[in-house]
Amino acid sequence: MNITVFCSAYSLDDRYAAPAAEFARLLGAGGHTLVWGGSNAGLMGLLADEVKAAGGKLVGVMVELLAHKGYPGADELVMTGDLAERKAELLARADAVVVLVGGLGTLDEITEVLELKKHNLHGKPIVVLDTEGFWTGLRVQLERMDTEGFLPRPLDELITFVQTPAEVFALLDSHQNS
């Protein structure tokens, strides 16, 4: 499976890095391909290192502006002209989308893939690994949107929040087998 991952390019403390590394090891050991922002920096670099060490493939999708931060061991590194093109390429290459901790860029990516899914422009599973309750505020807001009628489809058809890396793969495996 090609798993597109949205996450931070910043180095984070172990309470965020350790679950991300565990997720990456499971991804690589499962024979999956990591499709990610292509960076060697921070959490992105950690993910790539762990996936590669566990035997997985790496497909990076970067904006030309950040080419100097490209992961040197990627199996494929795609350069795009701008962020919109990058997001489209990340989604096009995905069989599933997984969201780890991240900042404004990650938030932008989540909302874009949710909006596209809301309009039935893709049917790929979107799974949020909610490490340390990082995305609780987003989940609560989305639940309110669902409860108050702002979503045309039930929230559980759009996105799933899980607590552990193992739950991510259990969910993706069940989706792939259905």
Rank of each mutant, 00 (worst) to 15 (best):
I3K: 10
T4D: 03
V5S: 02
F6Q: 07
F6T: 08
F6N: 06
C7R: 08
C7H: 09
Y10D: 12
L12E: 12
D14A: 10
Y16G: 03
A18N: 08
A18F: 00
A20Q: 10
E22G: 03
R25T: 03
A29N: 01
A29I: 00
A29T: 03
T33Y: 06
L34Y: 06
G37F: 14
G38V: 13
S39L: 11
A41V: 13
L43G: 06
M44W: 06
G45S: 08
L47S: 09
E50W: 02
L58I: 11
M62K: 04
V63K: 14
E64K: 15
L65M: 03
H68A: 09
H68G: 02
V78H: 08
V78F: 03
M79R: 15
T80I: 04
G81Q: 10
G81Y: 00
A84W: 03
E89T: 10
L90E: 03
A94K: 01
D95P: 15
A96F: 01
A96Y: 06
V97Y: 00
L100T: 06
V101F: 00
V101T: 04
V101E: 07
L104N: 06
G105A: 10
L107H: 02
D108G: 13
L116V: 11
K118R: 12
N120T: 11
H122Q: 07
H122C: 03
P125E: 01
V128F: 05
V128D: 07
V128S: 08
D130V: 00
T136F: 03
G137E: 11
L138N: 08
V140H: 13
Q141E: 12
Q141K: 05
E148Y: 14
F150R: 05
F150M: 09
P152D: 12
L155H: 09
I159V: 15
I159P: 00
T160M: 09
V168E: 08
F169L: 13
D173Q: 15
H175R: 14
H175W: 15
H175V: 14
Q176E: 15
Q176Y: 14
N177A: 15
